[in-house]
Simulated scan of single mutants.
Amino acid sequence: MAKTGKENRSFIAEGGAIPALYRIFRSTNPVAQENDALTAILNISIHDENKRKIIEENGCLELIVYVLRYGLTTEARENAAATLFSLSAVHDFKKMIVDEHGAVAALADLLMQGSPRGKKDAVMALFNLSTHPESWSQMLNMEAVSSLAGALRDEIIAEEAAGALTLLMRHHILAQTITSEDTAITNLVGLMKRGTPKVKENAIAALQEMCRRGGLNVIQNVAKMAMFSGLIETILL
């Protein structure tokens, strides 16, 4: 019922299903955890008015993150990431998710080790969280920035990863940290060469923020890239 229809999702939430469902998140039955509980909450969360009901239900966010970290199946963990992506669309909830113990680290881990679908949900959730101005320290401490830099090599999620890095590197500490590794610069310059127009746009924006916030050393590191010579001219033609 929750799969289809705005009205269905609204009626299910109004009927008190959210607290009944999230208590099953700790079930030792993989089917109950994945299909009966988490998938239902994910579907319910698609309806915007239900997002607040889920996030304000005492203990629900904690248990969504619990499944993201310790879910009995890959699909359960991916559904947890998708639920966080859904909830993080609301600005007021971004900081709550970032501050929930283990959330950012688990998303970063899924970004590096998940299936294509799991990586997509993880990077979209991290992108949403990156738009909050107070998220950067957690992103750095929980290895999310390094995971996003690594994700630049994956064509399926490179666009969102570059977009998230652009937002995060507006903080000079992050810009200096990420550009201390040549991999990030190499990956971004590579995207400028081979990516779609949107990927190229995000890669250029990320490099611009690197140079603007990271200082002279960062500018020199970007400028000395062998493949950078003549590339901007090629892109502009």
Rank of each mutant, 00 (worst) to 15 (best):
A2E: 14
A2Y: 11
G5N: 12
G5H: 11
E7L: 14
R9Y: 07
F11P: 00
A13M: 08
G16W: 07
L21G: 09
L21R: 06
L21Y: 10
I24D: 13
S27V: 08
N29C: 06
A32E: 15
N35C: 03
N35F: 09
D36K: 01
A40M: 01
A40R: 02
A40H: 01
N43G: 05
N43V: 01
S45E: 00
D48F: 00
D48Q: 08
E49L: 03
K51Q: 07
I54M: 06
I55W: 06
G59Q: 08
L61D: 14
L61P: 14
E62D: 14
I64T: 13
V67R: 10
V67W: 08
L68P: 12
L68M: 09
Y70W: 10
G71I: 11
T73W: 02
T74D: 09
E75H: 11
A76F: 11
E78H: 01
A80W: 13
A81T: 13
A82F: 04
T83S: 13
T83L: 05
L84K: 09
L84F: 06
D92H: 04
K94Y: 04
K94I: 03
V98L: 11
V98F: 01
H101R: 14
A103K: 10
V104P: 05
V104A: 09
A105P: 03
A108C: 02
L110V: 11
L110N: 08
L111I: 02
Q113G: 07
G114K: 02
G114H: 07
S115I: 06
P116C: 12
P116R: 12
G118P: 06
A122H: 01
A125H: 10
A125Q: 06
F127L: 12
S135T: 06
E143S: 12
A144H: 02
S146V: 07
L148Q: 10
D154Y: 13
I156L: 12
I157A: 03
G163I: 09
T166K: 04
L167K: 15
L167P: 00
H172F: 07
Q176F: 00
T177N: 11
I178N: 10
T179E: 07
E181M: 13
D182T: 14
T186E: 09
P197T: 13
P197Y: 03
E201I: 01
N202R: 10
A205L: 07
A206K: 04
C211V: 15
C211I: 14
R213C: 11
L216K: 15
N221W: 00
N221S: 15
N221A: 14
M225S: 11
M227W: 02
M227C: 08
L231K: 05
